[in-house]
Design a protein around this nucleic acid. Structure first.
Length: 554
RNA sequence: GGCCUCAUGGAGAAGCGGUUUAACUCAUAUCCCUCUCAAGGAUACAUUCGCGGGUCCGAAUCCCGCUGAGGUCACCA
């Protein structure tokens, strides 16, 4: 007759430490009152997902604003799905968004007293806990094969009973210790299951920081806690890791709500204090009138790298995510458009319960706002950083003459109501390329200049010549514009749109038409920022050249 | 299918039993301003809070039922 003790020794002969040893090794953290310990714990299965960034952002904020600790843990227990190198990538992308840690996994290194922070390196810790459970008769080896489990599921479905490995259906649970012992000695493959003492008909009340009290059916499933590869499942890793790392608030997606009873069961039987839980809404996408989770495969915007590549400002993305996270954030943002968002206090109570639809127009609007508030130096610096990584073309423009670029970026910037031209850094090129001679020449050659076809070419030519001959760079904007009006009037154009509208027959057009001629000459386009600014930024010789070139073809 | 969660306009949402004629932001539309654009300003956009009952003098707000959407039922997390 073997005992549970002997069974535990047979399975884990190399494990000599106990749960008490672990408690000593990972003592409670010394933190101020109210400090929360949070974590972001992704699997290294690919690049940073927009939803993951959202989750990480919330965990980070909750810890920061309470003077607590935010750390990064790598959940690499599924070696089949692992994509090598993605763990490091995840850390780096988060860092790009300002979500930095002072403890945890850093890609190449680890820091902190509660490590290791990579689950595959914590194997011993899980085994210590499982050995303890086996000794206490609360976990057992299960020899069922995938086929056994499939068959079980099928008969359960056919009989309309709750599927799963529990109670009478948990075959291996009813094996005697000797039987189990013998099978292991004989080299049979097995997993370790948790022996649940719960009853499906009882309810447990679990508090969720966002949703309030949840009433859930007790767990009675004998879930797998150690896979045959020797690594734990998520549930068991969550139990051990968050307990010994002293996480105070578990922030995770709402898809975990249904496994909450398992976690409660696990924490209770290990005698560990249950952490607080906050089940976050999942970011959705609308497709043909149906809501669904943002999908990494189908939606480019599901990967955070998409936004980075497009050149959306990081600050804008974070602010957008914050508006989804807390309904009162936007109001705060409007009052404090330039304040560091770390000043904003995030609360679980202001979090919505159902998943928000990802709204690109809203993101764009926020990004526009963010970019418009940057000084010329700030936007130049950030645009350069973006260009270095993603846009050689833009980089060339910036490096050609940085001061020149700054002056261009400064058009109607650094004022009360700045221009809002750009939603992302990649928009810059198209808006300003006419400032660069080679681009100008390209555009000049590409299509006929869009001069108003109702105005005689000779007239345009005469006006342009006269405008150019009398160009005075020393006058202020108002005076300059007056002279433009006078020039128009002289040629039969109304001084303003109103006058023209009242009596269209009396005029060939209005100042706008005259300005348009100059604009096309200088930019090849009917649309551009302020003309006066352009005249003062473009080098004088270049202005002369453009006039000559344009007049020449008229 | 069982269980769980959620449900206010095109989107994010405020509201939590009585000055709510349902705040605010984005989007959209129209108008104004204007040298074009980007802005800015003004106005419009839910007779009604998924539907049906009930409680109450009074309900988006409380209760019940239904419906819809999402999640979950793995040796994936």
């Amino acid at each position: 007759m073997h005992t549970n003790e002997e069974l535990a020794e047979l399975i884990f002969p190399e494990i000599t430490e106990t749960v008490e040893d672990l408690e000593k090794r990972y003592p409670p953290r010394d933190l101020p009152d109210g400090a929360e310990v949070t974590r972001f714990a992704p699997s290294p299965t690919g690049f940073l997902h927009t939803g993951s960034l959202f989750t990480a952002l919330i965990a980070y904020k909750i810890a920061k604003q309470s003077n607590g600790v935010y750390f990064f843990r790598l959940e690499d227990t599924d070696q089949k799905r692992e994509i090598s190198g993605s763990g490091k990538e995840l850390v780096e992308q988060l860092e790009a968004f300002g979500i930095t840690q002072n403890e945890g996994y850093f890609g190449d290194t680890e820091k902190g007293n509660y490590g290791p922070y990579v689950q595959s390196k914590r194997s011993k810790i899980y085994k210590i806990c499982i050995k303890d459970l086996i000794k206490r008769g609360l976990a057992y080896p299960c020899f069922c094969t995938a086929k056994d489990l499939d068959d079980l599921r099928m008969t359960q479905n056919a009989n309309r009973v709750v599927p799963g490995y529990y109670g009478e259906y948990a075959k291996c649970r009813h094996l005697t210790i000797d039987e189990a012992y013998e099978r292991i000695v004989n080299g049979m493959s097995y997993v370790i299951r948790f022996k649940s003492r719960g009853n499906h008909n009882n309810y447990v009340r679990v508090h969720d920081e966002i949703r309030g009290d949840l009433n859930l059916s007790e767990n009675d499933q004998d879930i797998v806690i150690l896979k045959s590869d020797g690594l734990p499942t998520y549930h068991f890793a969550h139990l051990c890791d968050d307990h010994f790392m002293h996480t105070t608030v578990i922030t995770r997606g709402e898809e975990w709500i249904s496994s909450l009873p398992i976690h409660v069961d696990l924490f209770n039987t290990m005698g560990f204090e249950l952490p607080k839980y906050a089940h976050l809404p999942v970011i959705m996408k609308n497709e043909d009138g149906k809501r669904r989770k943002l999908s990494k495969r189908k939606d480019p915007e599901a990967a955070v790298s998409f936004f980075l590549k497009e050149g959306y400002p990081i600050e804008g993305i974070i602010k957008y995510l914050m508006t989804i996270a807390n309904s009162n954030f936007e109001e705060w943002l409007m009052k404090n458009p330039k304040t560091d968002i770390n000043e904003f206090q995030m609360t679980f109570g202001k979090m919505s319960l159902d998943g928000a639809l990802f709204d690109l127009p809203k993101l764009k609007n926020i990004c526009k706002e963010v970019l418009s508030y940057y000084t010329k130096d700030e936007i130049t610096e950030k645009a350069e950083a973006y260009a270095k990584k993603y846009s050689p073309e833009l980089l060339k423009m910036i490096e050609f003459d940085k001061d020149y670029f700054k002056e261009i970026m400064n058009i109607e910037r650094e004022q009360e109501k700045p221009r809002k031209d750009y939603e992302k850094y990649s928009d810059i090129i198209d808006h300003i390329k006419f400032f660069y001679n080679d681009k100008y020449d390209e555009m000049f050659a590409a299509q006929p200049l869009p001069f108003n076809e109702f105005i005689d070419r000779g007239e345009i030519k005469a006006i342009l010549e006269e405008f150019h001959d009398n160009l005075d760079y020393s006058v202020d904007k108002q005076e300059w514009f007056n002279s433009l009006k006078e020039l128009g009037v002289k040629h039969g154009f109304a001084p303003n749109f109103k006058t023209y509208k009242k009596n269209k027959e009396a005029y060939k057009g209005h100042v706008g038409d005259v300005a348009e001629m100059v604009r096309i000459t200088l930019t090849t386009s009917k649309r551009s920022p302020d003309l006066y600014s352009i005249l003062h930024i473009l080098p004088k010789e270049e202005i002369d050249r453009r006039f000559a070139k344009t007049i020449d073809i008229l």
